[in-house]
Simulated scan of single mutants.
Amino acid sequence: MSGPNGDGIVTAAHCTGLNQFEESTSSIYGMTWRSEERGNGDAEYHTTSHIEPAEFYATSASIRDVNSIKSTIFMFPGSSVCEYGRSSNTRTCNHDVIATGVTATFTDGVTVKNLVRVTGDNSIGGDSGGGWSWNNKAWGVHSGSNGTTSLFTPVQRVQKELNVTIKTK
């Protein structure tokens, strides 16, 4: 993605203290925190030490091009979507949208609005910030789960709140 301070990546804002990331090639790159939103979504923007292409992880060994983004108004209940968790290195496509515009209070007491709730919870600790997608369409950033459902911040909300643009090919 690109933003006011340069190319970078987006992750969940409740993930604190991040200062590097590892690519599938095992290369480790530094990143610098730039901004975050925890209220109208759960996302933060970091610049990185190299140009970020229009790609996302489907698994740690499978990177896909971002061809488009999913508009929140088209995230209808029943729409299927996939989650990728970096810590679990698991991509699951057995989720369906339950509702958009969801408000949730996180375990740290912060209330976050404008989330998307989906069926299922396949995530483990450290999966927050992972991508939600379908084929090559970016949907959002993983925010959390409660054991039976999962939540993510939709891409449009990420772009609006952080003043960034998710790159597409």
Rank of each mutant, 00 (worst) to 15 (best):
L18C: 13
C82G: 08
P53E: 04
A138V: 14
G8K: 00
P53R: 00
S62Y: 04
E37R: 02
G144Q: 01
V158A: 15
T59M: 08
E55H: 09
H142W: 13
V102R: 05
S35R: 13
Y29R: 03
V118T: 15
I63C: 06
T107S: 08
V112T: 10
S26H: 14
C93N: 04
L18Q: 05
S2Y: 02
S128N: 15
E83M: 14
Y45Q: 02
Q159W: 04
N163F: 08
G101V: 09
G129K: 03
G6S: 07
N94A: 08
G101L: 06
G17H: 06
D42P: 00
T103A: 11
T48H: 04
I69D: 00
I9D: 00
E52H: 09
S79F: 13
V102T: 09
G39Y: 07
C93F: 09
T32Y: 01
G8Q: 00
G41T: 03
L151K: 07
N114Y: 15
S143L: 10
T148L: 08
N146D: 15
A61T: 10
G101E: 10
D65L: 07
S123Q: 13
C15F: 01
E83C: 08
G120K: 06
P53L: 01
T103G: 05
D42C: 02
R34M: 11
T16Q: 08
G41K: 00
S80L: 12
I73P: 02
S123M: 15
H46T: 02
E55N: 12
K70C: 10
I98C: 09
A99V: 10
I69N: 03
W132E: 12
H14S: 11
T165V: 08
W134D: 11
T92V: 12
R38E: 06
I166K: 04
A99N: 12
E55R: 05
R64W: 06
L151G: 12
S26V: 02
L151W: 14
R157N: 15
V155S: 08
R91G: 05
A61S: 12
T100Q: 12
E44S: 03
I51S: 08
T90G: 15
N19A: 02
W33R: 03
V66Q: 00
V155Y: 01
S143C: 06
N163R: 09
R86Y: 11
T47Y: 01
T47M: 04
S133V: 02
S143H: 15
Q159T: 09
S133L: 09
T153M: 04
I51Q: 11
N89Q: 05
S145I: 02
S35D: 10
T107F: 05
G144V: 02
R157K: 14
N19V: 09
H14A: 04
V81W: 06
G125I: 07
N136S: 13
G109P: 00
V141D: 01
I9P: 01
S27G: 07
S27P: 05
T32I: 03
S35P: 07
E83D: 12
T32C: 03
T16A: 09
T119M: 10
T100R: 12
S123H: 13
I73Y: 14
P77A: 05
N135V: 11
R86D: 08
M31H: 05
G101C: 10
N136Y: 07
